[in-house]
Every structure is written in C-alpha cells, then in structure tokens.
Design a protein around this nucleic acid. Structure first.
Lengths: 148, 148
DNA sequence: CCGTTTTCTTGATCTATTCAAAACAAAGGT
DNA sequence: ACCTTTGTTTTGAATAGATCAAGAAAACGG
C-alpha cells in the first residue's frame, strides 16, 4: 500500500511554472487531487475539487487535464470500457494491472530491467516513442467470488 | 503488406458451430468481414455488411461482436480516442503499433520468445491472464509531414 | 413443418467528451 | 496598485460510441 502522497500548492505551482503554464486555482487543485487519488477520472477530479472550488465545471477539468497532458505533467490511462484516467507523470515507465472482474487498477513497476517490450520486431516503419502495457486478470476478491 | 485473408462461409460456419453458437447471416458475414478488414470498428463492419445485408443494424453488430468476443472467436482492441476495434482471434499473442499522428494501427508479432511482459514483478495479488501491449509512435508519413 | 429459444430490428437513452461564445482571472507593464 | 492583454473558465448545447427494452423474425431440434 502506497503512503498517500501529498503535493503542496507551492510544489504544484512550481510544476506549472516550470512547464510554462499559468498558475490557476483549478490547475493547482487538479495536480494536488491527482497526487492523492491516482488513476482519477475527470469525474473523480471534479468531485475532489468541489470542496475547494464548489463551482468548478467538467469542461474546466477537461481543459486542465488536456493542458497538463500536453505539457507532460500528467499521463492518460485508457482502459477498456472505462472513462479515461489521469495520473501524475512519474517518468518511471510503469505499467498497469486491471481486474477484469471489478475494474480495479493498480500500478506495476516495469517488470525486468529498463524497458521490456520496447523493441518490437517489426515497427511497420514507425518511430516508437512509448509502450503501454496493460495486464488483465482477476483480483483475489473476484477469484473467490467466482469460485462460489 | 499482408495478403488479404479470406474466410469462406463454410469456415465461418464451422467456427460458430465449434463455439456452440447459432449460425446466422449476420455472424457469418461479420466473421468474413473481419478476415478481410482487420482492426475493424463496429461502424466499419456495418459498412462492409451493407452489400450483403442492406438492413443490418448497428445494434445487431454490437450484439454479434459481443457474442463472438464471449466465445473467444474475436478479440477487442481499445485504443485511446478511438472506437473499439475487433479482430479475429489468432492465439498468437501479438501486439499493436499505433501512429499517434494519423491513428493508423498495425500488428506486431510478439517481440521475443513466447510472452514477454507476462510476468510483472508485483501483481497486487491478481491472477494475470493477458498482457496487452500498445506501442505508440509516428509513422513515416507523419514524420515527414511534421518535419516540414 | 412446428414450437421453442435465440437473435435481430427499431427506436429511445446514456455517458464521456467536445464545441462555441461569453464571463472571468492571471501576469506584465505603467 | 491599476489597467490591459491574453489565456482560462463557465455556461449551455451538441456529438459519438455504446447500451437498454420490447416486439418481430429467424435458427434448429423434434
């Protein structure tokens, strides 16, 4: 279990400035929300922000995450049958496991060495930048439930 | 360039029977369409089927692919920002490359040996069944276009 | 060929996301 | 501090992909 990470407003501000982005309440709050709630959907983020910014709109959060994504501060995680999720960019090339039963998502550190699977045998003349790996399986709870 | 694969109606019928599914015009036609047009969306499939079955509905194709998926005859490919794509299940554990410029998708034979990336270091107590790998990069055309 | 069961059609609905235009807020210069 | 410019957010509507529900039609075993 990861200790709940905290990102101060000052740290979030620094990240935004460093990326050449204006510092707004919505952006700071979004970064801070993502530090705590990893793999958050836009809906999750809006919910987190309501305390601090009661009238924040979905549209605003969609724009914020799009900007943060373009700036490389967050990355997007697209899972089958779910809304897109966002996470703070950690530059550690980690992957994800998803339970096909309950949809739970967890991080997986890069398996062996630096970047497995980063060198496909035939790239169809494409210049590969990233490899996203998604492991799918059943978590313990769902296994027990289906064994009944 | 892969030679256009063809699946006869008889072969498609055999696949359906083998999976314990009823043989319908829509299912046979969908399997045949997928043999030719790999990575087809539901929309692509409906378009392919219009010649043979002018009044086929989207709903029918959604149901057909869901049944074929449940039977293990096809697999689904979910790419960021695109409608789901379907392909005949080949049981060869291949992966995909996608051009982030134009969205083109190609198959990639499994890189090294049998199943790389199938053994994450920490599975969070999940029983891993499959690993989907998506390589993202720029194809030659998009590279040239962006170099202008 | 008939009846049962499954599948397909029709038409409505939902959810995630995007578009467009006006209201507002951040940052730089005076 | 204030004003201006520019970029961001709100508001409200629109879109696309996918799903739900109920009746009509087709498959297949007897």
């Amino acid at each position: 279990m990861p200790v709940t990470a905290v990102l101060t407003s000052e740290e979030a501000t620094g990240l935004l400035r460093g990326a050449g982005l204006r510092v707004t309440r919505q952006r700071v709050a979004t970064l801070r929300a993502l530090a705590v709630h990893r793999h958050a959907t836009v809906d999750d983020i809006v919910t987190s922000l309501r305390d601090e910014l009661p009238k924040v709109s979905f549209q605003a959060v969609y724009l914020v995450v799009a900007d943060l994504l373009a700036a490389g501060l967050v990355s997007r995680l697209d899972l089958p049958g779910q809304a897109s999720r966002y996470e703070l960019e950690r530059r550690d090339n980690h992957h994800h496991v998803m339970c096909t039963g309950c949809g739970r998502v967890e991080d997986v550190p890069c398996a062996v060495g630096a970047a497995p699977c980063l060198h496909p045998s035939d790239t169809h003349d494409m210049d590969i930048a990233v490899a996203d790996v998604l492991f799918r399986g059943l978590c313990r709870d769902c296994r027990q439930r289906s064994a009944l």
